[in-house]
Amino acid sequence: MNIFRLAGDMTHLLSILVLLLKIYATKSCSGISRKTQELYAIVFMARYLDLFTDFISVYNTFMKLIFIASSLAIVWCMRFHPVVRRSYDRELDTFRYFFLVGASFALALVWHDKFTLQEVFWAFSIYLEAVAILPQLVLLQRSGNVDNLTGQYVFFLGAYRAFYILNWIYRYMTEPRFTRWIAGISGVVQTALYADFFYYYFISWKNNSKLKLPA
């Protein structure tokens, strides 16, 4: 564990807490893409299959369980909570996300560390995570306004990916034989998507105008 990875994990946790706080405090999920949240639930369940086979540390196991439980809780709230579900922007959240799941799985079948069930699902989860934010960005683009908590949620998610890139650079330099091509390249793609969003978020915030992402 190095400081960059810890900072990445903490900002990731913070992003989820911000989202839960928004839903709990406002009893509303407007501006949140349920499709993105469902993709994250799939990402964590596919990636953490190793909970059954490998023990790394108490911290590692605890965080994995937190990520699985919190993502399922958010999806549950948006689908079934009697008050929260009414504010779901169903007509704006129309991204065809099965395409992302299919493409990520197809890529995992051809590019993985080992052709085993666990490794293919791990690679699948990495590719899917890289693009899981897309339905959320499309929803924000359509609704045209981003409330502070939703903006902070996406900001912390972006910070988490940026810290992980620093972590990989650090490990590459300090650990012999450390390479993470799959996670590294996917991580750069994912961080670029967030950086792009923040560029337009910042511009619209500075001009005090509606968010306008390029189509």
Partner: peptide, 10 residues
């Protein structure tokens, strides 16, 4: 190579 070692990241 270590790319196929146990995945120790989240």
């Amino acid at each position: 190579s270590s790319s196929t070692d146990v995945k120790d990241e989240l």
